[in-house]
């Protein structure tokens, strides 16, 4: 039989099938095993893509090593890729995890997902922001600060302002089930103990604190004047100040007897069974360099460098000027997992 005229010719059908085969070949030949020795590094990133991607591009340019990344979304609040790493424990795909806080890195260490690596560039970073055995290393931090609507008085000075009747119904906090707010609550539990921390949480609820979906939303709600203050990350606050929004930053609990301000550094770690461990170490060295800290400081995220003598944006204090909360991130990580049921119940999940 022949197919004439406007029908599909055998040639067209052949071209169609060959195109699909080539396409499938293109996507399938990119398998992890195949590029194991290639100049590639796989990194899972919880830091916002807007800020982390330019850094990774610089690494690519500088080393010629191709970076393949998986980024978290706003909705999963830094826990999405961490949990993906847990699910891939027996089938690791990533070399490096760039966490936007050390607690997730601690959880992964406790689950046996990371391996120690002490980078030469970690020298100069204060010990409190590093795992003693090198399972993770902190860099470029955020501080947990109050954003206060400009001109409002009295200003909150302590985290206990959340239970102050003067601020009843005028305060906002991000959902404590996610992100750095969970870390903050867990830190309070380790500092104060279970009973006092739970009583504080209940008092906060009675004082009619509003729950927002994210720190960014909290900052916006304070900037628009709907609430007097909220506890957010310093990058959220600095970002709004740069936009000219009417807010001020207050570092909580800085007095002599104050518990201090929680510092939340980024953390980077090498994954156990990483397909490209050498390239992973190179990426870790790069991320821990002073130059990376400088770039993250002058970027819109305004992060606070942990190396001394690195340029710091004017909107935030230098790390030496902040009274940091004296906590063990390992203890906070354990506590964070313990208090999940309480937090779920507190939120009403």
């Amino acid at each position: 039989m022949e197919c004439r005229g406007r029908g599909f010719s055998r040639k067209a059908a052949l071209i169609f099938l060959v195109s699909i085969s080539l396409g499938i070949l293109t996507v399938s030949c990119d398998s992890p095993k195949r590029d194991a020795k290639a100049k590639t590094v796989v990194v899972y990133v919880s830091e916002d893509q807007v800020f982390s991607e330019p850094i990774l591009k610089d690494f690519e340019k500088g080393t010629g090593i191709r970076v393949k990344a998986v980024y978290d979304t706003e909705e999963t609040k830094g826990t999405g890729v961490m949990n993906r790493l847990i699910a891939e424990k027996d089938n690791p795909q990533a070399d490096v995890y760039w966490a936007n806080e050390p607690i997730r890195a601690e959880v992964l260490k406790q689950k046996g997902i990371s391996v120690p690596y002490v980078s030469p560039n970690a020298k100069g970073i204060p010990e409190i922001f590093k795992d003693p055995k090198g399972y993770w290393t902190g860099f470029s931090a955020r501080a947990r600060v109050f954003v206060v609507h400009k001109g409002f008085k009295p200003k909150p000075r302590s985290i206990r302002a959340y239970v102050d009747p003067r601020f009843r119904g005028k305060t906002v906090i991000a959902n404590p089930l996610f992100g750095t707010t969970t870390t903050h609550i867990a830190a309070l539990f380790t500092l104060w103990g279970e009973d006092r921390a739970k009583a504080f949480m209940e008092a906060m609820k009675l004082n009619k604190v509003k729950l927002s979906t994210s720190n960014g939303e909290s900052a916006d709600l304070v900037a628009s004047g709907e609430f007097v203050f909220g506890l957010v990350d310093s990058d959220d606050a600095a970002n709004r100040i740069r936009q000219g929004r009417p807010i001020e930053i207050v570092y909580p609990d800085q007095g002599e007897n104050g518990i201090g301000c929680l510092i939340v550094p980024n953390a980077v770690m090498l994954i156990k069974g990483a397909p490209h461990p050498d390239n992973g170490k190179k990426l870790i060295d790069f991320l821990l360099s002073k130059e990376t800290e400088r770039k993250l400081a002058i970027a819109a995220c305004a992060q606070i460098p942990l190396h001394s003598a690195v340029e710091t944006p004017s909107e935030v204090k230098r790390i030496e000027q902040i009274k940091a909360m004296a906590i063990s991130y390992a203890k906070v990580a354990r506590k964070l997992q313990e208090i999940q049921p309480f937090l779920k119940q507190w939120v009403g999940y």
């Binding site: 399938s28 990119d30 891939e88 089938n91």
Partner: peptide, 12 residues
């Protein structure tokens, strides 16, 4: 998501 089927899980 298994080592044996990584040619699927680890690729597009």
């Amino acid at each position: 998501n298994r080592p044996i089927t990584n040619f699927v899980y680890g690729t597009p």
